Computed example of a mutant assay.
Amino acid sequence: MQPTDTQRADLKETVRLEEVRRLYGKGDRAVRALGGVTAGFRAGTLTAIMGPSGSGKSTLLHCAAGLDRPTGGTVVIDGTDLGSLSEHGLTLLRRERVGFVFQAFNLVSALTAEQNVALPLRLAGRAAPSELVRAALAEVGLADRAGHRPSGLSGGEQQRVAIARALITRPAVVFADEPTGQLDTRASRQILGMLRALVDDHGQTMIMVTHDPVTASYADRVVFLADGVVVDEYAGTVTAELVAARMAALETAS
C-alpha cells in the first residue's frame, strides 16, 4: 500500500546528516569530534541530543546548523545541501531557514524585547512590522514586555524573547543549545512546555542539545552520542528515568 500525502508529509525530514565527520587539527594531532554520524530529523518533531562530556553533541549541532563545516559527509536542511553553499550562501540560509536558541539567551542588551525579536528580519534586509513582532512576543506570553530591555526581564522572560526571535523568520528548523541551562525549575518547565507546544501546535521542527534527562523527556526522540558516533536512541514514550539510566551507563563506559 502506498503512503498517503499526509503520511508522506509526516515522514519528511527537515534535516538530514549522512556520514558526517569532523576532525580538528591535522596529522597525528588530529582529534575526532564526529566519526560518521548519519541521522534524519523529521518535520514537526522535537529531538534531544545527549551524551557524556566530549561526546560530540555541540559539534553535531554546529555542523547540522551550518555554523561549522564538517570534514566529510553531507548535511541537508530543508532540501538544500549545505556543502554546495558558499560562506555567504550559508549565512543567508541561517538567516532565512534556521532559528537558534542558546543557553546564554544572547540578547542585545541595548535593545528592547521588541527590537531583539525584530533583529533577524532587519539583518536579512526584510521589513519588521511592529504588529508581526508584537504578535511573536504575544505568542510567548510577553505582549506586555515589548518595551523592556533584557536587564529588566527575568531569565525565563529573556529566553522567551530568544524563542520569539528564533521563530520570527518562520524557520524550517530551530536548534536549541541547552535552552534551560540557566533557568530555575519553574522557568525551565515553562520554557519546555512552550517548545513542546510549538512542535505540537505549529509543526515546528526542533533539535535540542541537553545534558538534563528531564529536559530530554519532553522530546519525541532522544539520540545518544559517545565518542563522536550515535550509539543509541529512544523514541515514543521517553521518561527522565529511562534517559538518566542510559546516560549513567554511557558515562560509566567513557
Rank of each mutant, 00 (worst) to 15 (best):
L92D: 08
V75M: 00
A143V: 04
L111C: 02
M50E: 04
A110N: 10
G25R: 01
L23P: 00
R94S: 00
Q182F: 01
G35N: 11
M206P: 01
D201N: 14
I49T: 00
L23G: 06
D220Q: 09
S86P: 07
A9M: 12
H148A: 12
R196A: 13
R95S: 12
Q115T: 09
V229L: 15
V214S: 05
G125M: 06
T74Q: 13
P52D: 09
G72I: 01
E251A: 14
V101G: 08
G156D: 14
A128R: 04
L250Y: 01
M206C: 03
A146F: 10
L242M: 13
A39H: 13
T215C: 15
A172Q: 03
G203C: 07
V101K: 02
V243M: 09
R221E: 12
D200P: 05
A128N: 10
T112P: 05
A245D: 12
V37F: 08
A110Q: 12
G44I: 01
M50Q: 04
R21D: 08
S58N: 10
E87T: 10
A64K: 09
L60M: 14
L11H: 15
E13Y: 11
G56R: 06
G236N: 13
L107I: 06
G44E: 02
A118F: 04
A172S: 13
A226S: 15
V133C: 03
L111S: 07
M194R: 10
T169N: 15
S84V: 13
T91Y: 09
Y234D: 13
R69A: 11
V222Y: 05
R69Q: 09
A226M: 08
A124R: 04
G99W: 00
P171E: 10
R69F: 04
I163C: 00
A176C: 14
R22P: 04
V117A: 02
L111N: 01
L92C: 13
E19A: 13
L183I: 08
A219I: 02
A166S: 14
T71C: 09
L23F: 13
T180W: 02
E131A: 13
R145P: 08
P3K: 07
A245E: 12
T38P: 03
V214R: 03
K26C: 03
F105N: 07
R29H: 13
L85T: 08
E19Q: 14
D78M: 07
R29Q: 14
A30C: 11
D232S: 14
V140S: 02
E19I: 10
S86A: 07
S84L: 14
R186F: 10
M247K: 07
R145Y: 10
A235M: 07
R97T: 03
L17C: 12
E178M: 03
N106Y: 15
R149V: 04
A113H: 03
A176F: 00
R22M: 09
F100I: 02
S53Q: 09
D201S: 11
L17M: 12
N106A: 15
V238I: 15
L183C: 08
R189T: 12
V15D: 08
A138T: 12
T252I: 08
R42A: 09
R196L: 05
G152C: 00
G156Q: 11
G181L: 02
I207M: 09
E178I: 07
